[in-house]
Nucleic acid binder design. Structure first.
Lengths: 225, 225
DNA sequence: GCTTCGCCGTTGGTCAGACCACTATAAACA
DNA sequence: TGTTTATAGTGGTCTGACCAACGGCGAAGC
């Protein structure tokens, strides 16, 4: 890896070394890494290099730096990374269309996985969020958080954290957009019913029907774009 | 953004500023950013901070630093990031399972989108990659790059860049695993046939059949875990 | 006139040392 | 025993210096 014929920075080499270290020691989330000083001595490089390597790794979520305390191994979460990258997505109109289509695939996949996993607690929570959503609608308020929470809980019901993170990123993106145009009361009420249909179908473990209901629910979004 | 009541690093603030700058100026890949010196003067922080921010962004692929030249806006590719993060995924048995299941959803979604989009050029390229894959297999070599290229081209055939990136994030990871255990010649040959079946089904615009063929193709992976 | 070569300014890469801010820990205290 | 305080260690930021790579420009050569 650190062979010649490679004109890379020291920072890159150092971050590779630290990653190797994590693997060799089989460290997990929360484990404490050597301090900056120790890394400097062990690797024989300047503090600048070690710090730049660590800062990069921190932004990737690989490590977590705590001031005055030390450096810890971070979780395997995708979120910090995707957040860093998605900041440019709204540049493109086209990107929006793509996001809608991508979301469709993810939501349909989610109902399938949710049925396979069948987490009763999550299904109950989906009921709860839908109930609260109905309340908000009755009060004439836009049920944005509730709607989002419903879908997030669905992704959580898959029991697949990777999938949850991946989907969460896409869904979060829609929240920002929806804050501007609140849907009408009628369409919100319709959404509540559609949510209920999805839940019912999942409870019945009917994959085809659940997908159909979700498809119906998402159809207006497709047209909107 | 840089209000008080937020105990974040200067580096974070600076990298946010630079991202804002990219958005405000509507900069695209390859555009040149201000030099370190200019950023230092404009933001009123030390070189250390600016450099740490830039280094982090470089590792995320947001910018590309060229020694002796300057700083450029990077592409929207998720690849560089994936490499930085996925190095620990295989530690987790569960993460592996999640990845396999997630990939299944994404691949099935891809064939559906590919049929909807129907990009002949991409389909031809899938044929081409599959042909090269067959050649490699005949030579007794592991057709890793070709296999990966085939699937990537499938994702590209969706005409959906977002989906391509999202999927690339997941499926690239499987390459590294496969580099270790090369599949047997028989299983590779089987893969080639399965790929062909997928292509045929897409060309026939038969969504159900294409999904079925893809499901068959991915089945061994599910069991492997 | 055109090309080639080499100088030099700019830019990023690395280093060393200093000082500040924060945290955990342990010693001193009530 | 429980609280407060002192302290040592850690990361955060700054400065100034030197090195290495690149680009541009002018001089030399064709």
């Amino acid at each position: 890896m650190l062979n010649s014929s490679e004109k890379v920075n020291l920072s890159h080499i150092v971050s590779e070394r630290i990653k190797e270290y994590i693997l060799e020691k089989d460290m997990r989330e929360g484990d404490k890494l050597p301090s900056e000083k120790q890394l400097i001595d062990a690797l024989g490089v300047s503090r600048t290099v070690v710090r730049e390597a660590l800062k990069s790794m921190e932004m990737l979520g690989i490590v977590k730096i705590k001031t005055g305390d030390g450096i810890y191994v971070g979780g395997p979460s995708l979120k910090p990374i995707l957040e860093q990258v998605s900041f440019r997505w709204h540049q493109d109109e086209r990107k929006m269309t793509e996001l809608v289509k991508t979301r469709r695939i993810l939501e349909l996949g989610a109902v399938e996985m949710a049925i396979e996993n069948y987490d009763v607690a999550c299904l109950d929570r989906m009921d709860e969020w839908n109930r609260r959503m109905a309340e908000k609608v009755d009060q004439g308020l836009p049920p944005i958080e509730e709607d989002l929470a419903f879908h997030e809980t669905l992704f959580r019901a898959t029991g697949n954290e990777t999938y949850l993170e991946l989907s969460g990123l896409i869904s979060d993106f829609f929240l920002k957009i929806r804050t501007q145009h609140f849907d009408s009361v009628e369409s919100s009420r319709k959404s509540v019913d559609e949510h209920q249909n999805v839940i019912d179908a999942i409870r019945a473990k009917d994959v085809a029907r659940a997908k159909r209901e979700m498809e119906i629910h998402l159809a207006p979004l497709q047209k909107f774009i």
